[in-house]
Design a protein around this nucleic acid. Structure first.
Length: 513
RNA sequence: GCUCGGUUGGUGUAGCCCGGCCAAUCAUGCGGGCCUUUCGAGCCUGCGACACGGGUUCAAAUCCCGUACCGAGCACCA
């Protein structure tokens, strides 16, 4: 029987199924409604009235493209499920990953550039009292103890699955010592509060982790500068996720054990842990600079990069300068999905997305790098290429040839050969000039005459083009002068660019081919 | 050392939970062709992948075991 079914082809099976069980066929047909984004569905969405997610950036510097993945994916899910999105600054380390005051705003700016707006913004450093209250509650429930072991001494015990002497401390003493921590009566390293998990747990990463520690250096935010007793990420984030009603957490595989650690906390408090997804690290091709906040910062400090918006830096600010839309970045990042394995983001994918978004609206212009000058002999006074080849209604540009033209040296034909100056006509290279031939466009179609871009030798605009490989100087056609900073153009046969400054020379950033 | 996770074409991804519509999706990339006064867009077309070995099964990308490789955690970082 099974073999006979296997022998049927798909339409035959459908026919048989329709005859036997039409309702099952309808089910099959509706199973593949797909969304317009490539992300998978979130787990158990039906169990929640509202999907609530959070971005949890550490404000220790401006964002790079990897950081953008969080708002790109979470923001996309928010839109799909009509959910709620929190931006929570996890700024609880004034020492090792010290927050940078300017980063709070710059991160919010980057999120906005990507096209998203958090429904609420909070800072962990505003919430210390809340964490203290929960720590007291945890101590009351027997879930934590103060410990004055050195990090090394505790690590040795822990690795052998042995408790430290402080583990069975009297609850009242724990409470007192914790208040002393809160009051700043200890210095860094002298005392911590540990979560009591399972000191013999087979995974050593979960054994009695630190919940609070002392930090001597004041927090850079004035409002938080007086505190010395700071929660660790697992405690702070665990409490906040519950209090803000987060239903779905998405975070990196480096935090794979976090949920397991925090589960002990949730058990003590009798809370329900949110759904959690982990994704791998993102690497990026095409850049020589690694996608790491600290690396980029170091290169800027050393003068290797001009700043966070240097086109060689894989940052959001640099993309913005280059005219790469936030939407293009988001589309490319969303395409990466949320797999747990490490992924490479191909910049060609970002470029393809951006091209699709801006191509139709972007005016065309000529830009000649390292120009070779030649006089034009005979022929009209000016060329008139279209503003956009697909939109005749947008008109034409007027580019004079009086006084000669500049061609890219590679485009200058050999003596005696012809070349078609785009928007002007066919010319022949004779000794030291270009003679207008009056040939029709058929010579391009049938005889293989190359088509090249050009600019007037005199009436042109000097322009510096900043690219990932350094700055290129050259000359643009006169009309480029009239574009304001922020405008995007396509330099024909060169690529898309964004005008950055109307100075002399003008400054533009190269977007992509 | 202990623990946890991963491996689908050049890149990314879908499918895996619930084995059969999978001779494996879509995008990007690269190659051809058409069109074209761009190296852009559009249209047509081609290239190219289930890490390896066993097992279960009528049937395995999908389930199980092992191997290899990659990654992560075992911080008083996030």
């Amino acid at each position: 029987m099974v073999e006979r079914v296997n022998d049927l082809d798909t339409p035959e099976r459908r026919d048989r199924l329709e005859a036997l069980a039409p309702e099952r066929l309808a089910e099959l047909d509706t199973e593949d409604d797909t969304d317009d984004d490539p992300l998978g569905t979130l787990p158990n969405v039906d169990e929640y009235d509202q999907i609530r997610m959070r971005l949890a950036p550490n404000p220790n510097g401006p964002w790079h493209l990897g950081n953008a993945r969080m708002p790109a994916v979470i923001g996309t899910y928010k839109e799909r499920y009509d959910g709620w999105m929190l931006c929570r600054f996890d700024d609880t380390d004034p020492e090792t990953k010290r927050p940078e005051l300017a980063a709070y705003d710059s991160i919010l700016d980057s999120i906005a550039y990507l096209g998203f707006e958090p429904d609420e913004v909070i800072r962990a450093s505003d919430r210390l009292e809340t964490y203290y209250e929960h720590a007291r509650e945890l101590i009351d429930r027997g879930g934590a103890y103060t410990c004055s072991c050195s990090a090394e001494a505790f690590s040795d015990l822990k690795n052998n699955g042995e408790p430290c002497p402080h583990r069975d401390k009297d609850a009242a003493l724990v409470a007192d010592e914790f208040e002393a921590m809160v009051n700043g009566e200890f210095s860094a390293g002298e005392m911590v509060l540990r979560a009591r998990t399972d000191i013999t747990h087979k995974n050593p990463a979960l054994r009695d982790w630190v919940a609070f520690r002392m930090i001597d250096r004041p927090h850079p935010r004035e409002a938080a500068a007086e505190f010395r007793c700071w929660p660790m990420l697992d405690f702070q984030s665990g409490v906040d996720d519950h209090l803000t009603g987060i239903t779905h957490i998405i975070r990196g595989i480096d935090l794979q054990d976090s949920a397991k650690r925090q589960q002990f906390l949730y058990d003590y408090f009798d809370w329900e842990y949110p759904e959690v997804l982990h994704w791998g690290h993102v690497q990026i091709d095409d850049y020589d600079v690694s996608m790491s906040t600290s690396t980029i910062k170091a290169l800027i400090d050393d003068g290797e990069l001009e700043g966070w918006d240097d086109p060689r830096a894989p940052t959001i600010e640099s993309c913005k300068k280059r005219g790469i839309l936030g939407e293009a970045i988001v589309n490319a990042l969303v395409e990466l999905g949320t797999s747990t394995s490490d992924v490479d983001l191909a910049m060609s994918s970002v470029y393809a997305q951006n091209r699709e978004l801006i191509d139709d609206e972007t005016d065309r212009a000529f830009f000649v790098r390292d120009g070779v000058e030649r006089q034009i002999v005979g022929g009209p006074d000016a060329g008139n290429p279209p503003v956009h080849p697909d939109h005749e209604e947008r008109g034409t540009r007027t580019i004079p040839v009086e006084g000669g033209v500049l061609l890219e040296s590679e485009d200058l034909p050999a003596n005696g050969d012809r070349v078609w100056l785009k928007g002007y006509g066919c010319v022949r290279h004779t000794r030291d000039a270009l003679e207008f031939t009056g040939d029709s466009i058929d010579v391009v179609r049938n005889e293989g005459v190359p088509v090249v871009h050009w600019v007037p030798a005199r009436d042109n605009v000097s322009l510096e083009l900043k690219t990932m490989d350094g700055t290129v100087t050259g000359h643009a056609e006169p009309g480029v002068q009239s574009y304001d900073p922020g405008a995007e153009l396509q330099f024909e046969r060169v690529g898309f660019i964004r005008i950055d400054a109307s100075s002399t020379p003008m400054v533009a950033y190269f977007s992509h081919p």
